[in-house]
Design a protein around this nucleic acid. Sequence first.
DNA 1: TTTAGGTTTAACCATTTGGTTAACAAAAAT
DNA 2: ATTTTTGTTAACCAAATGGTTAAACCTAAA
Lengths: 197, 197
Amino acid sequence: MTTEEKIFEAAFNVFQKKGFTGARMQEIADEAEINKAMLHYFFRSKEKLFEAVFMNAFGKLAPQINGIFNSDEALFEKIKKFTDSYISFVMEYPFLPQFIIQEMNNNPEFVAKFLKDEKRPDPTKLLKQIESEIELGIIKPISPKQLLLDIFAMTAFPFAAQNLVKGIINISNDEFFQLMKERKIHISEQIINAIKK
Amino acid sequence: MTTEEKIFEAAFNVFQKKGFTGARMQEIADEAEINKAMLHYFFRSKEKLFEAVFMNAFGKLAPQINGIFNSDEALFEKIKKFTDSYISFVMEYPFLPQFIIQEMNNNPEFVAKFLKDEKRPDPTKLLKQIESEIELGIIKPISPKQLLLDIFAMTAFPFAAQNLVKGIINISNDEFFQLMKERKIHISEQIINAIKK
DNA sequence: TTTAGGTTTAACCATTTGGTTAACAAAAAT
DNA sequence: ATTTTTGTTAACCAAATGGTTAAACCTAAA
């Protein structure tokens, strides 16, 4: 592994755990087991390093989302695939949702930048599909945006609020992951039950 | 308004926007229009000030949640009341969910402290009620914990991921609030539709 | 063997940051 | 009226932090 890769990986871990303002360049250097000056040698500044990490993180998620949302399958099929593949993916990077949400909130100016990115999640097609399936009488009349929110909320929230969830329903990390595994089918069942005619 | 109140209010705003690590004592002082030394005069340290703000924030939410969850009403009624009152409340403090979630994630040691608080949200009774209503044949068989997660996720997520949501479905702040208003009934409808027999 | 390129390190720097102090003012208590 | 307590300020401080620099160190090509 090259030094640059070591830095990137360490930065990914530290930024994810501590957020941008909480992360320390020294801590990233320590975790990468390299000299702090190397961070600036390869990435110029904390901002630049963060941006690289953040865009990479988002870049992992977005194509997956778009791939499913923009396919030609039926809505129910999309919902099933999305919940399953999103949760499977996020279980490998359990801090990704909270990281993305947190930084989008703390750096509002950052939102604009990434929304111009070609890889940004674009639900336009899915929203139209929902409308059309309502007209076709396949699903109950419902606000497409609300349904989209439902899908995101049910899948992403437990990870985003991980520690809170573990604390409140009083479960261990292992139990949490077990719950998330079961949740893959639970969510699509719930949503489809709610909207099918 | 006393100086202490001015400080508290300013701290509440700044911590909410920037998080603990992102917040600056000077910024809080500026927002409160007082000398920075007063922060330490009244609250000793950044940690202490933060703790006061955080516990207060949680203290606003938790009783409301517990009040509904532990009442003697039927499940459907509880769900309706919860989504309505939670969203109404959070619309007045739109940054509260993201603030709480973020700090619970960034300060895991903080979780333990607040879980000992008497005001912590305790879903035990609600979980038992769900089980019993399943046995009574009122609702479909379903994992009580998953249902609890569903309720929290549907209500809290849009606020927690506010900026992301606004960006992705491309709506203004006003439209977002309109959507949240409609969401009060939308959520309970969705969930009840999904679980009713 | 030399040299030119990128890579790595330790020491250093300026600024920011949370926190303190000592003097001072305004109430409160005596 | 005077002392004591409480509130307030400006100046200051040490530590932390992001960032720089110049020299040393490789290593592969000339």
